[in-house]
Simulated scan of single mutants.
Amino acid sequence: MTVRRRPLTVDQVEVARTLHEHGHPIAAIATHLDTSYNNVRQRLIKEGVQLRPPLNGDPPTPLVSESGQYCKALALREQQSGSA
């Protein structure tokens, strides 16, 4: 049995785009949105986002700092959508 993930919502796509544009890796974005890497990657490609090459072992930038604060890009996006 194949499990299909739900497609990303319009708001999730905008969050993914914003985070990716601010340098966050797709894997971290997928974890944050509770979806798969491929789901985020394929949707970014569909939206015409230029993907970066993999980090080659460098640690990813966390979406949430050690103090529990979201990255500025995510906080800005949430503020603009009125969900903050």
Rank of each mutant, 00 (worst) to 15 (best):
E47Y: 05
R5L: 15
E47D: 15
Q12E: 14
Q12C: 09
R41T: 01
R43Y: 04
E21T: 00
L33V: 08
A28G: 10
S36N: 09
L33N: 05
T31H: 11
L74T: 04
E66M: 06
V3W: 02
N56I: 08
S81I: 13
L33W: 10
L33G: 04
E78K: 14
T31D: 14
V10K: 11
D58W: 08
S65D: 11
E47T: 08
Q12V: 08
L76S: 13
Q69M: 12
L8H: 06
R77E: 15
A16I: 02
V40P: 03
A73V: 13
P60L: 03
L55M: 12
Q12R: 07
R5K: 14
I29Y: 05
T2W: 02
T35P: 07
P25C: 09
T2N: 01
R17A: 14
P53G: 11
P7F: 12
S67Y: 10
A73I: 10
R43Q: 11
Q42E: 11
T2Q: 01
V13S: 05
Q42S: 07
K46D: 14
R52G: 06
V13E: 05
T2C: 00
Y37H: 05
G23A: 07
N39Q: 11
I26G: 04
L8K: 02
N38C: 03
H24P: 00
L55S: 13
P7S: 09
V64G: 06
V13W: 09
P53V: 02
A28Q: 15
P59R: 15
G57E: 13
P59Q: 08
G23M: 02
L8R: 02
A30W: 10
S36Q: 09
L63P: 08
A28I: 08
G57D: 15
E21F: 00
Q50P: 09
